[in-house]
Design a protein around this nucleic acid. Structure first.
Lengths: 230, 230
DNA sequence: CGATTTTATTCTACGCTGTAGATTTATAGT
DNA sequence: ACTATAAATCTACAGCGTAGAATAAAATCG
């Protein structure tokens, strides 16, 4: 009699349940697979019932985006704003890696996702309290968010969708390179295939991310005159 | 008797014509409005005819993505790699601002868009030739691309889609702020509305972009002689 | 308790989508 | 002119989101 996530018992639904199930479907079978009919079947319920809990398709996707943004780490208690931003960027990148199929939903910044705004608010407050030289907190935050979003999205796009269900964490970069060598279409001109390999598999993706992040944050640190080694 | 883009004469189509028309439709009426039937009508042709020039819907969108990536500036002749990267980032951001409705297509990095790979190749070559300290060219390039992609996408998402056809370049930030104050839903908690305003309209978006870019590129310039830190 | 109002769920149907497959029309080659 | 190849069209099908009517369940009240 456990309330398992699939194969509903007659316990009444709630919005949250609908959204988490939708996210499960997306994670498991891809964003395209999520239709009202499919989700209704997953919940053992008529498709139209979903409208009562989550609105139409558009609002359903907004709801899933909320779930996703809730997973991003809040600033925490540390006083160091730079470490806070570093954790934010890592958390955002990890979000993409946990939910590669849902990536387009994370980018759905147009709809004023509440948890996303809460996140902004929290980091803006954290940055306001700390000394950051002459820089606007919003400017710094937007830059870090942009980098993390762009990196996370591009990374999973390159790995996951192109090559199928690949997880960069389960493959050495050597294996990745070999696999990619076969996966690239043979009619691709050599110089382009080379470029693809260099960008995708040649450099350690974790290292690239940390390096890029350091680039921004180091610049930030030097501009505060706090003088940490840069 | 001019070869205008709409209302075709009987001159035979080619792939390019189909793709540019598709992009026009997206720019004008949004990505959702682009259907095979709609595009067929635009070209005064049966929807199925498109399959002969551009393949199915998926390959059509890939083709539009090609057009978009072709618009991004190549390195140019300058020897300075940092200025080259700065121009790349600006060019990429401008691409989003020129084609806000097509933004999801620009991010479609999964499909090995040829012009995109050409771009990578060109910048990798440019970075290889120049001295960049111990940093991998691919790592640097990925960081700059990530930032520009993330910033460009987030920017147009915040402005364009939420508030309708707004162009940030035609509005002062003061006007933007006022407009946004009305546009935000009234049931939004005050602290979240504040966060949204600060992130969207409070800071000059051009300035934010340039600042973030400087952050990365400055770090790059200083690291050309210092090597690495951990 | 029964009666009535509210809420939740389902059913049916409409117009839209992408596209496979057969068919027709136009072009090129000899 | 006749054929082989290419281009364009027609028809049809399964799936989509969802408006609106119809039904079932739950809550409210006298």
């Amino acid at each position: 009699m456990t309330t398992k996530t699939a194969s509903r018992n007659q316990i009444r639904l709630d919005r949250r349940q609908v959204l988490t199930t939708a996210l499960e479907v997306v994670d498991r079978e891809g964003l395209e697979a999520l239709s009202m009919r499919r989700l209704g079947a997953e919940l053992s319920v008529d498709p139209m019932t979903i409208y009562h809990y989550a609105g139409g398709k558009e609002r359903l996707l907004d709801g899933v985006a909320e779930l996703l943004w809730e997973e991003v780490a809040l600033p925490g208690v540390s006083r160091d704003p730079i470490e806070a931003l570093r954790n934010l960027a890592r958390s955002l990148r990890d979000l993409f890696r946990r939910h590669p199929e849902a990536a387009p939903l994370i980018l759905r910044c147009s709809r004023l996702i509440h948890p996303q705004l809460e996140l902004y608010r929290a980091y803006l407050d954290a940055l306001d309290k700390s000394e950051l030289g002459a820089r606007e907190p919003a400017s710094v935050l937007r830059s870090v968010l942009s980098f993390a979003l762009g990196y996370g999205y591009a990374e999973i796009s390159m790995l996951g969708v192109q090559c199928g269900p690949l997880d960069s964490r389960t493959l050495s970069q050597r294996e990745l390179l070999l696999y990619l060598g076969q996966a690239l279409p043979s009619n691709l001109p050599r110089r382009l295939a080379e470029a693809a390999m260099v960008m995708i598999a040649d450099c350690d993706s974790d290292q690239c991310f940390e390096d890029g992040l350091d680039l921004m944050l180091a610049g930030l640190a030097t501009s505060t005159d706090t003088g940490r080694t840069a």
